[in-house]
Simulated assay, not measured.
Amino acid sequence: MDQFRIAAIKNDLVVIKDAVARLESNLDALLKGSLTIEKAKELPLKRHDGRLTDAGIAAVNAAFDAGATVTDVARQFGITASASSNRRQIWKSR
Rank of each mutant, 00 (worst) to 15 (best):
G78T: 03
W91Y: 15
L52F: 04
L23C: 12
A68G: 01
A59G: 01
L52W: 02
I90E: 14
G33N: 03
L52H: 01
K92C: 05
A19W: 00
E24W: 04
I37Y: 02
T80S: 15
I16M: 15
A68K: 12
K92H: 07
Q89S: 13
A8I: 04
E24G: 15
D54R: 14
N26M: 11
P44M: 06
V15H: 13
V70H: 04
E42A: 12
V14M: 13
R22Q: 14
L30R: 15
R94E: 11
K92S: 08
N11Y: 07
N86D: 07
T69N: 06
P44C: 04
L23N: 14
D49Y: 04
K41N: 03
S85K: 02
G67Q: 01
L13T: 08
A58L: 06
S84M: 02
N86W: 14
K10H: 12
I37H: 00
A7K: 15
K46T: 04
I57Q: 06
L52D: 01
A7C: 10
I57N: 09
R87F: 03
K46Y: 05
A68E: 06
V20N: 09
S93K: 09
G56D: 08
S34Y: 09
S34N: 10
D49I: 10
F77L: 10
K41P: 01
A62Y: 01
V73R: 02
N11S: 13
T80H: 08
G56I: 04
D49G: 03
K17A: 15
Q3S: 14
A19F: 06
L52Q: 07
I57W: 11
A74C: 13
G50C: 05
D54T: 08
R5F: 14
A21D: 13
A62Q: 03
K92W: 00
G67H: 04
I16W: 07
R22N: 13
N26F: 12
I16P: 05
L52S: 09
R22S: 11
F64R: 01
R75V: 15
R94C: 06
S82Q: 11
D72M: 03
A7E: 08
E38H: 02
A81T: 15
N86Y: 15
A55F: 07
D12V: 07
I90L: 09
R94T: 14
L23W: 07
L23K: 08
A74W: 02
E38Y: 00
V20P: 02
E42I: 00
E24C: 13
E38N: 05
I79N: 01
R94Y: 02
